[in-house]
Amino acid sequence: MNDYTNAIEIKNVTKKYDGFTLDNISFDVPRGSIMGFIGQNGAGKTTTIRSLLNIIPINAGEITLLGMDHIKHEREIKERLAVVFDELPFHDIFNAKEMGKIFRGLYAKWDDKVYEGYLERFQLPQEKKIGQFSKGMKMKLQIACALSHDAELLVMDEATTGLDPVVRSEILDIFLEYLQDENHSILMSSHITSDLEKIADSVTFIDRGKILVTGYKDEVLENHGILKCTKADYRDIDPEDIISARITDFGAEAMVSDRAAAARKYEGLLLEPTTLEEIMVYYVHRNTKEWSS
């Protein structure tokens, strides 16, 4: 087993499509941590994940997974990572038992006992065809398959989207258990920021192919804040200090990225803490600066 500090290192990666560019992005996922990768639909989350998994070739940049180049050591990396997609990638004709048989043949470290344990825990029938599973059951099956070959890195692309809160909570608990091993790391892309607020150690926010914010979740939340004021007070705020502002009939709410500085500069204004969801929404409107809901 090789030694590495970051489970994922993405340096200056560019991927060009017609009408979309993943623009020179860089971020790291430290070993033993869970990173929330957030952004609205079409922001570039899936393209980033597909690039790092070498599903699509990148135009420029470097990607290192588990301390190895993602192309040169592709086979070795893929033995040691697991991926959970938003939709179940298994054929409807198979059942859970047959999927176990397939993965047993594909992964050197596949563990039948662990897999059966997950099936039992998730109450997934072994003989029932996958086509007859509910969305929650399908996602649980995918997670059971992902966690049964001792993967060191778990990559999830919108895995909790469309699931009810009970199933989501159950799945998040599984991820926290998985992280008990300090060698395990997770990259979790989602636009359900409440999930990430619960479990993520760090967050990266992407919009229109560009990384806007990346860092430890607590620091990101601590640095950002919302200035609440009247429209008259808002006109006195330096536009350079704000990300964007929501203008309502009753006043203005402006997002700042340096809460401490804003607190000193605008002493008389109400400065409130923010959430990941608000950060996402305010950053999305950064170009128009002012918006109303």
């Binding site: 893929k78 991926v83 997609f85 990638p89």
Partner: peptide
């Protein structure tokens, strides 16, 4: 076609098979 439609085609890229 079934592989593409079931997303297995995409998934197979993350499996340790060439």
């Amino acid at each position: 076609l079934a592989d593409v439609r079931a997303n297995w085609m995409r998934y197979s890229f993350v499996l340790p098979v060439s």
